[in-house]
Amino acid sequence: MGLDELSDDIDATYADLGEELSVALDTETRNELAMLESVYDPDETDELVRRAIHMLFQTAVDTGNLDFHLRSGYDVTYDEYLMGMTMDTYNEQPQQQQYPPQDDNARRYQF
């Protein structure tokens, strides 16, 4: 698998998700959601679910967990997905800075 397959899978899954998602809750999840809703008092419970997805995604990116799974399943990284090309292809381009950047202070992902 590769970058094209990943892009195709993301596009297909995005289309399948639609605008709304019904989720079954177990007792633990319902209890945690009730606690969060009581504390944060959002306009809708949906807002907490959206925040949770953003937080899970950010954590997966920051810890390298997303890259691990992308590399295992598609042989690409999140950086490669964002650039639209693999590092091999990127490094083969003439007069391009080689990856990774030499600046140790550069943040890997910036949101």
Rank of each mutant, 00 (worst) to 15 (best):
T86P: 08
N31A: 12
N65G: 02
S72D: 10
H69G: 02
L33Y: 13
E47K: 10
Q95S: 10
G2C: 04
E32H: 13
M1N: 03
T45A: 14
D9E: 09
Q110Y: 03
P42M: 09
D103I: 08
Q58M: 02
N91M: 05
M55K: 05
G84E: 07
L56I: 07
L17K: 13
Y109P: 09
L36S: 08
Y99F: 14
A24F: 13
N105R: 10
T89W: 01
Y78G: 00
D41W: 00
R51H: 09
G84P: 12
D62S: 07
H69S: 02
D75T: 04
Y90A: 13
G64R: 08
L82T: 06
E32T: 03
L25E: 09
Q102F: 01
M1A: 09
P94M: 11
R51P: 00
Q97W: 06
E37N: 14
L36A: 12
L6C: 01
E92P: 07
F57S: 04
E32Y: 11
V61C: 04
R30Q: 14
T13I: 13
D79Y: 03
Q93T: 12
D8T: 08
R30T: 06
R71Y: 04
R71S: 05
R108I: 06
D11S: 12
Y81N: 02
V49E: 01
L3R: 02
Y81S: 00
V49D: 01
S7P: 00
Q58W: 03
V61E: 02
G18W: 15
F57R: 03
D43Y: 05
Q110H: 04
T86G: 03
H54K: 06
L48H: 06
